[in-house]
Nucleic acid binder design. Structure first.
Lengths: 188, 188
DNA sequence: TTTTCCGCTTAACATATGTGCAGTAAAGAC
DNA sequence: GTCTTTACTGCACATATGTTAAGCGGAAAA
């Protein structure tokens, strides 16, 4: 789990005692490519660290599969609303490649949530996520789909993008797959 | 300040002692209509409660004024990144009508941030804001501008919308003012 | 009051993206 | 390996939204 420790330490310092508690709360789990970690309608019962692999969060809207976001290791994730309120999730989470996660359940999580270092960690994470979401949101208002796609391929390494089917990139960008094809054709 | 107390108590319970500390941390400030509470480039030095009035958060992008969001009383606000890191703000905040706020400065805020009840309050607020931002973000991906406008006028009372100039509604929706005119013309 | 400016609308035309359909390539099933 | 399905591309046409330009009316300035 030392990848996880290194990840958390980017946000806060952890005493050895705290780390013992955190470490003991998580168990390892592996998924093949294209597996559902969470299915729409089910309750998200875990908080996760993504140690290895690539995830896609998506909604089914009027029968259409719309990508909300991708998550790249190392990071932490859960279906926020569903986990927090232990209610049926509106979104699904799937792996886009072989993936390794560490998970803790809702009950264990309550103990972590009482720890000072965990609170700092989570506060920073949700601020970071919110910053990112807001920035992305402004981009959608201001930039064309082509500009957003160009920015995407600038920012993310080819190694990661090559693992994401274009239909999911297009729904992430909010356009039809055919439109993404057209855009790609116009780019040198 | 009892409006503020009522507002916070929607998220957490406050002991009398805690309330004394909170209350003592905030001072009242009034703004006329169309005043800048925060200007792009300046550091946001306060955390606020909006007791009365209506705010617009906006970015200047290539000389264009783009609305990020509106805030309706009662709620709390600040320029999150700028306040948190005490760095120059990318965004501006202005009043769209006569407005009353309660403000606390960065130093005082550090004391609040150590309080248990404040931590609970802020955790819930940022979760709520993130939930809202994500939902809005999905809407932009899936709905046309016309659908988003219709939803907007369904959700918000006429009393509030009538205070928002259409050019700001259009940049909030991510479309040109002329396009919003056209959309409005097609709605009974 | 008169003048100026700004917000809003309208229209004509331009462009980006959607939609339906077909063909090919790639991936998964057997 | 072959078969079947799915992903991707390309095209023609449809639609939503952008852009430019003009005009109207009310609000602010003189």
């Amino acid at each position: 789990m030392h990848h996880i420790k290194t990840f958390i330490e980017k946000y806060t310092t952890i005493s050895n005692d705290d780390w013992e508690i955190i470490q003991a709360s998580f168990t390892k789990k592996a998924f093949d490519k294209n597996r559902l970690i969470l299915e729409e309608g089910k309750i998200c019962r875990h908080f996760y660290f993504l140690e290895n692999g690539l995830l896609r969060f998506f909604y089914n809207i009027d029968g259409e599969d719309i990508t909300k976001t991708f998550t790249i290791a190392p990071y932490c994730f859960t279906s926020r609303i569903s986990f927090r309120e232990q209610t049926a999730s509106q979104e699904s989470i799937e792996t886009l490649e072989k993936t390794v996660v560490w998970q803790t359940d809702f009950q264990q999580y309550q103990k972590l949530a009482k720890m000072e270092c965990w609170q700092v960690f989570m506060r920073k994470i949700i601020n970071e996520v919110q910053d990112f979401t807001e920035a992305h949101f402004m981009e959608v208002k201001v930039m064309t789909a082509e500009e957003r796609y160009k920015k995407l391929i600038e920012i993310y390494p080819h190694e990661i993008l090559s693992k994401i089917p274009l239909k999911h990139l297009s729904s992430f960008l909010g356009i039809a797959p055919q439109s993404l094809s057209r855009i790609r054709k116009n780019i040198p």
